[in-house]
């Protein structure tokens, strides 16, 4: 399944790397439910969020600057940062 990472730039503690925001990738696997770090970091009672591993090509992330376009990066992204693409 293809997904796009939200292109949001809120202040505060988040675990979605800037270099992946707005980028489209493929879900590699679903990992399960984990505490939402955006609440946990502030010692607020955290809600559980689905966490998935997403695979992005270097070409998608870096465009013409990619060292080898077909190499990939995989990262864990919380589902509330993803939308279908």
């Amino acid at each position: 399944m293809k997904v796009r990472v939200h292109n949001h730039w809120p202040p505060g503690h988040i675990r979605t790397p800037s270099y992946l925001r707005g980028k489209i990738g493929e879900i590699e696997r679903e990992i399960g439910l984990f505490n939402n770090p955006e609440q946990n970091a502030y010692r607020l009672l955290p809600q559980k969020r689905h966490l998935v591993r997403v695979r992005f090509t270097m070409e998608e992330i870096w465009g013409d600057a990619a060292e080898t376009p077909d190499d990939v990066i995989e990262a864990e992204i919380y589902a509330h940062w993803l939308e279908p693409a």
């Binding site: 675990r15 990992i31 984990f34 770090p37 966490l51 190499d71 990262a75 864990e76 992204i77």
Partner: peptide, 25 residues
Amino acid sequence: KVLSEFGVEIPQDVQIRVHDSTADM
């Protein structure tokens, strides 16, 4: 390039997958 600085050369027909430990795993 970083791997080559560590003394590791990966052929172009081998795909590199970088795993960014962004969350709980």
